[in-house]
Amino acid sequence: MSSTQTKDTKKGRFSPKNIAKRIGRFFRDFKGESKKIVWPTKKQVVNNTIVVIVMMLIVGAFIWGVDALMSLLVNAFLKIA
């Protein structure tokens, strides 16, 4: 057993009572943090969704264009070779 394991068990870090306290503290902290959440409005959600869809279409069109160009270049190279 290493010295750190000996120190942890001596302090009672892994005792059932200490674990229960840590779990309770976790849920209290979780409740406090969840009260700080600011949910977006319906308008914000719709706007963000539209932005994401438009960006997906733009990026998709760009990738399609690059793919088509590369395909033409590879086919032209293979015809020459």
Rank of each mutant, 00 (worst) to 15 (best):
S71V: 04
A20Q: 15
F30C: 09
G12W: 02
S2W: 05
T6M: 11
S71D: 10
R28E: 08
T9V: 13
L73M: 13
M1E: 10
V45E: 03
R13E: 05
K35C: 04
I53P: 02
G65F: 04
L69F: 11
F30K: 14
K7W: 11
S15V: 06
L72E: 07
K79M: 08
A76D: 07
F30I: 02
P16H: 00
K11P: 03
V59H: 00
E33H: 13
V54L: 06
K36Q: 10
M56A: 12
I63A: 07
T6D: 09
K79G: 01
V59A: 14
I80T: 02
T9L: 15
I80P: 01
N75C: 06
T4P: 00
N75A: 10
T4I: 15
T9F: 15
Q44C: 00
G32F: 07
R13M: 09
G24W: 02
V46R: 14
I50F: 01
A68N: 08
K35G: 03
G32H: 12
I19F: 01
G65H: 00
K21Q: 10
M56Q: 08
K31Q: 04
N18M: 09
K42D: 01
A20S: 07
A76S: 09
V38N: 05
N75R: 15
F27W: 11
F27G: 06
I50K: 06
N47A: 10
R22Y: 04
I23W: 02
K31P: 04
K7Y: 13
V38W: 00
V38A: 07
P16N: 05
K43W: 05
I63D: 03
K17E: 15
D29A: 08
V38P: 00
V59N: 04
S3C: 06
S34C: 11
G32K: 15
A81M: 12
K11S: 13
V46D: 05
I19A: 12
V45N: 02
F62G: 01
V51H: 12
S2M: 03
Q44I: 03
V59R: 09
L69Q: 10
T6W: 06
N48F: 04
V59S: 08
R28C: 01
V51S: 14
A76P: 02
V51C: 12
K79W: 06
I63T: 04
S2D: 12
T41G: 04
V74H: 09
K43S: 05
V66E: 05
N48R: 15
P40T: 01
I37E: 07
K11L: 14
F77G: 11
A68R: 14
I19V: 12
K42A: 01
N75I: 06
W39S: 07
A81D: 06
F62M: 13
K79C: 04
F62S: 02
G24I: 03
F26W: 06
T9D: 13
